[in-house]
């Protein structure tokens, strides 16, 4: 399990993952917050449907793609959590039309 090792500097923010409210720390990326919440997998691949989770945490690998506030295929490791954010996992390829 990923757990916090220090008190941190900022306060708390709340966001929604798959519709459930999750507490994160201010400054967490969405990927870090999801991991801290105990989840390892965030999507399945368009090619084979295999499960995937955050891998590089620096914007290189594009494994942590999630839907954020209705926008699919966002890099969860490059987006800082904001209060009330709606984060969803993705199954296969995204929908094209809204």
């Amino acid at each position: 399990m990923f757990e916090r090792t220090d008190a941190g500097a900022g306060g708390q923010v709340g966001f929604f993952f798959e519709g459930s409210r999750v507490e994160a720390r201010a400054g967490d990326t969405v990927a870090a917050a999801i991991l801290a919440h105990g989840e390892r997998s965030v999507r399945t691949t368009p090619a084979s449907g295999a499960p995937r989770g955050p891998f590089c945490f620096m914007g290189t690998c594009f494994e942590c793609l999630v839907e954020i506030d209705g926008v699919p295929n966002r890099q969860a490791c490059m987006v800082v959590v904001a209060e009330g954010m709606d984060v969803r996992r993705q199954e296969g390829a995204r929908e094209a039309t809204p």
């Binding site: 399990m1 757990e3 090792t5 941190g8 400054g27 870090a32 801290a36 955050p54 891998f55």
Partner: peptide, 17 residues
């Protein structure tokens, strides 16, 4: 994940597994 990723989690969120 990568070892760099572990370190980034520690640097930015104080997270460790």
């Amino acid at each position: 994940m990568t070892v760099g990723a572990l370190q980034i989690l520690l640097k930015t969120s104080g997270l460790a597994d």
